[in-house]
Design a protein around this nucleic acid. Sequence first.
DNA 1: TCATGAATACTTGCCTGACAATTCTGCGCG
DNA 2: CGCGCAGAATTGTCAGGCAAGTATTCATGA
Lengths: 234, 234
Amino acid sequence: MDSQGSFPLGPSSLTEALYESVRKRIVNGEIAPGEKLTEVRIASEYNVARPTAKACLERLTALGLLRRSVHKTAVVPKLGEDEIRDLYFSRETVERAAVAALARRGVVPPAAVRAQAAMKAAATDMAFESQVEADIAFHSALVAGVGSRRLSRMHEVILGEVHLTMGQFQAHRTTHPMNVAHEHDAILKAIEDADPEAAQQRLTHHLDQAQDRLIGQLRREGGAVEEPPEEAPA
Amino acid sequence: MDSQGSFPLGPSSLTEALYESVRKRIVNGEIAPGEKLTEVRIASEYNVARPTAKACLERLTALGLLRRSVHKTAVVPKLGEDEIRDLYFSRETVERAAVAALARRGVVPPAAVRAQAAMKAAATDMAFESQVEADIAFHSALVAGVGSRRLSRMHEVILGEVHLTMGQFQAHRTTHPMNVAHEHDAILKAIEDADPEAAQQRLTHHLDQAQDRLIGQLRREGGAVEEPPEEAPA
DNA sequence: TCATGAATACTTGCCTGACAATTCTGCGCG
DNA sequence: CGCGCAGAATTGTCAGGCAAGTATTCATGA
């Protein structure tokens, strides 16, 4: 049958384009959590060789967007309560350091205010996914504004999992986007005032609320299975 | 032609063993900074197929232990002053969060005191590389003690680059290992006393000193070339 | 009927071999 | 002495294949 060759690839290098496309499909929830992603499936869907698909799955696994152990099929994970707490603990660690550094300088990254504007514009009429992306762009710009390549890299990985988790709760959004927009404003204000303590405190408040919303949704609906830690660190 | 097959592989899976071996050779400075690592070289040295070697280089590149852009050979990087500052900024971010969390609980991870004991034992007579490894084990245990998988993962990446940089200055060590041992003790003491502020303050002092030592050595000897940032973040 | 064990299909780990595209190197020419 | 160009070196991607491990199904025995 002709079950292959329907997902178009982006512009850049083949591996890169494949990676980006699969990544998007995962974080958008287009590929459901728990769904299995075999190498041959990716290979045939995109008309690429199996090694290429393999490399793609390995990259996604390294980023935490897929889980797999040896000789087993990769599945997109569904984070349980503990995992979400761990994720947000790490996220707070990175972003607190970022806003503190920014506030110490007292300069707000231009990209952050741009993202914030886009967020407000998307608040009323745009699709949920657009709001999520605007929110992520804001936090991403905040960290990028520090100018630390390594901090940004760590944050990128974390935001990947955050995006994934938010995408999985897409259907039942209960958040008012204007609320988070106001919280964003408060953070920017504190940075502008060169007040590191306040900036950190407001960021923590913001993230704690987001975490609570996620965990609340998780408890309400599919409490489902919590996967065990896949690997005991030596 | 018997020009191949001289580096023995470890016990585990082939890819894993290959990765570990090459990683060790890099962080130990056995492969000099600036040296080029081609896929075929690795493949022939270890008697593995080129795709296997390729995967290995890709993993090391993702960890920051190698640098390469498309179609160019991977080289082991030599961190410049700015890079070292960035590295230690990220390191402080992660480790400060770790010791604060530990101090809030008031419990010292047993693995950390074990590593600390090993460090003191190695202080006088053992080789420099053993001291470095004991030091790294101590900080690693500190972060692992928090129990956050994601924090540990971030830290692991950072320590990889730290290890690499320390290994490159192997010859000209000027540090008295007992000094750093005492600083470690002070950190543990603050954690035990459940004093997060003190723990963070002492950790910062410890890391700042280490950073200054590294930068001092860098300035003294090969100021050399500082490689430009390989990629402009979007 | 239900539980247990064996055979089969599926999937991944790793290999050989090959071709195209790109980058690097050295040589000759203006 | 600078410049461009051909050849070499290196990587990106593919095809095909075998071995090994995992999951599933089916048949057999209690």
